[in-house]
Design a protein around this nucleic acid. Structure first.
Lengths: 149, 149
DNA sequence: TGTGGGGCTTCCCATGGTGGGAAGGTCAAG
DNA sequence: CTTGACCTTCCCACCATGGGAAGCCCCACA
């Protein structure tokens, strides 16, 4: 039951760096912290709670902007859970989309690497593909000949 | 057939924006383009080829820094394909790591949303979790079809 | 030959989160 | 009172990208 703590202790206690705590305050995600007479920021239990909330939401990949919305809902005791659920599901969809993109890259690249001997010879389908463009899609009408210049 | 083209045409032809073409030149990824007497940049076939190479590598998620390495290997006729393959596989590993992170987020969030009624009541396990922090035991939401409930 | 519009140049600014670091004030222990 | 750990603000950097302003340049058309 210690009283309010300084920013460093708040950082240690919540896993949010002091830099980021100030940043969140500056950008309005969190309300301005209280101050000592000499200007030190002070954080009470509720502030620490908020910081942990933000930390957790960041860990789940929410943008700071989205977290502002989540915080508002968190503080609104009359909120409808459907709103929160909608945000969560929207974010899940977003994550899945990004995952699909990365997976497409990884698949393509792994397949290219699979066809690459990986020895001391210079032949390399990976570079060939990079130079020629995507293989699955028929490459664009190449008006030029692969001129040996 | 057609001689060197201006930056706008190069952009259209390669899918790399004029902005980015200048940026790549500025940062040394690509050599300075030729210029007309009045200062316009000019791009020949080989330059366009390089631009497409960069574009393709970006599409596969390589960082600009990595692409510098790939370009160097591309231009080195004596390169060993093992070097290229190593870079590719390293990048694949990186992609897989990021995918795993995003998947963990999506899984957690989807499971939270699954337990949320999503109606007009304010009760919401999603916010509860955000407020309370990660579940103490990293419980594995079963990956199979959720049992009918 | 003049003019209009579109393309080119450079330069600066912003994004999103995060870290680094300098210059200077504050606090507590010795 | 000194020392060292902490705090403050302010500026800079990252990465890759886009926006936009101010000012040339080039071409086609009248």
């Amino acid at each position: 039951m210690s009283g309010p703590v300084t920013i460093g202790e708040a950082a240690r206690a919540t896993g949010v760096s002091a830099k980021m705590i100030r940043y969140y305050e500056e950008t309005g995600l969190l309300p301005p912290a209280g101050r000592t007479e000499s200007g030190y920021r002070l954080y009470g239990d509720e502030d620490l709670h908020s910081l942990r909330f933000v930390r957790r939401a960041r860990d789940l990949g929410f943008s700071v902007e989205d977290i502002a919305g989540l915080l508002a809902l968190w503080h609104d005791r009359a909120r409808a859970s459907s709103e929160v659920k909608a945000m969560a599901l929207h974010h899940v969809a977003d994550l899945r989309r990004r995952i699909a993109e990365l997976e497409a890259m990884a698949r393509t690249l792994a397949s290219l690497a699979d066809h690459c001997s990986g020895d001391t010879r210079p032949d390399c389908p990976i570079l060939d593909d990079l130079a020629a463009g995507p293989s699955p899609t028929p490459r664009r009408p190449d008006r030029r000949k692969p001129s040996p210049r």
